[in-house]
Amino acid sequence: MGKSNSKLKPEVVEELTRKTYFTEKEVQQWYKGFIKDCPSGQLDAAGFQKIYKQFFPFGDPTKFATFVFNVFDENKDGRIEFSEFIQALSVTSRGTLDEKLRWAFKLYDLDNDGYITRNEMLDIVDAIYQMVGNTVELPEEENTPEKRVDRIFAMMDKNADGKLTLQEFQEGSKADPSIVQALSLYDGLV
């Protein structure tokens, strides 16, 4: 993909415009910024974590950033290329609610087996709590990752089998306004 070129080839721009919710001009602008920050044309896990640390200076986002990195890194080569970056950004910032929920499901399904187990969710929720640090005051019933996961599973795990399917996750998330709101945070920002 033209590693350190400051412009993408027209056919690449066209393809990314088809695969995302961005215009050709927006794709070019994002590429310019991506190459400025990642001259090699790729972003590794350490660089990704560094970006998260800028956004969450009062907590430790390392663990959460690693989980997000793994979802962005579609081809699992340990690096995020621009096409992976822009497609994930498109879903998280401008995707439909169902697209965002499928993306979030992939984030929580750490072993990619098609289910979110209690332990997988606990890993992610714990990482989120570490990331936000003491900057967020949580209600008593959610002031630990374990309590939050218990509440989520009580609401979403309809067949009580200890794991969530994509359908259970989507339906449960849509029924909880706070989850829908959290997924909409990026709307309109890009």
Rank of each mutant, 00 (worst) to 15 (best):
Ser93Tyr: 05
Gln167Leu: 15
Lys100Val: 01
Pro145Arg: 02
Gly78Glu: 08
Ile179Ser: 13
Phe153Met: 07
Tyr108Asp: 15
Ile179Met: 09
Trp30Gly: 03
Ser40Asp: 09
Asp123Arg: 02
Ile128Ala: 13
Asp176Phe: 07
Gly33Leu: 04
Tyr108Pro: 12
Asp37Tyr: 08
Asp73Pro: 05
Val12Ile: 08
Val136Lys: 02
Glu146Ala: 05
Val125Ser: 01
Leu107Cys: 04
Glu146Leu: 07
Thr117Phe: 09
Lys3Ser: 15
Leu43Pro: 12
Tyr115Ile: 13
Asp161Ala: 09
Phe169Tyr: 02
Pro177Ser: 13
Lys163Arg: 13
Leu107His: 02
Phe64Gln: 12
Gly41Val: 14
Phe105Met: 12
Asp111Arg: 13
Ser83Trp: 15
Asp73Glu: 11
Asp150Pro: 04
Asn70Cys: 05
Leu8Phe: 06
Asp77Ser: 03
Gly59Arg: 11
Tyr115Glu: 06
Gln181Ile: 04
Glu171Ala: 07
Thr135Arg: 07
Ser6Gly: 01
Val136Ala: 06
Phe22Met: 02
Ala160Val: 07
Phe22Asp: 02
Lys163Gly: 06
Gly133Gln: 14
Met155Leu: 06
Glu141Phe: 14
Asp73Leu: 13
Lys53Trp: 09
Ala127Glu: 06
Leu164Ala: 14
Ile116Trp: 00
Asn75Phe: 10
Val68Ser: 03
Val149Ser: 13
Thr96His: 14
Phe48Lys: 12
Asp77Ala: 14
Ala104Val: 08
Thr20Leu: 12
Thr96Ser: 06
Lys147Ala: 02
Leu8Trp: 04
Asp77Asn: 12
Thr135Asn: 03
Phe105Asp: 01
Gln87Met: 10
Phe64Ile: 07
Lys158Leu: 05
Lys174Trp: 13
Asn112Ala: 10
Ile128Leu: 11
Thr20Glu: 12
Lys36Tyr: 11
Phe169His: 10
Tyr186Met: 00
Phe82Ser: 14
Asp150Tyr: 07
Leu89Val: 04
Asn119Asp: 05
Met155Phe: 11
Glu137Leu: 10
Arg94Gly: 10
Cys38Tyr: 11
Lys100Tyr: 08
Phe56Ala: 00
Asp187Ala: 15
Thr20Ala: 14
Ala154Asn: 05
Asp113Arg: 11
Gly172Met: 07
Thr117Gln: 02
Lys32Ser: 09
Lys32Val: 07
Gly172Lys: 00
Leu166Ala: 14
Pro57Tyr: 01
Ser4Asn: 11
Phe82Asn: 13
Ser173Met: 00
Lys7Cys: 06
Ser90Leu: 06
Ser83His: 12
Met131Gly: 15
Gly59Gln: 00
Lys7Asp: 06
Arg148Met: 00
Asp161Glu: 11
Tyr31Cys: 15
Cys38Gly: 09
Asp111Asn: 11
Ile179Val: 11
Pro139Met: 00
Glu74Trp: 12
Glu15Asn: 05
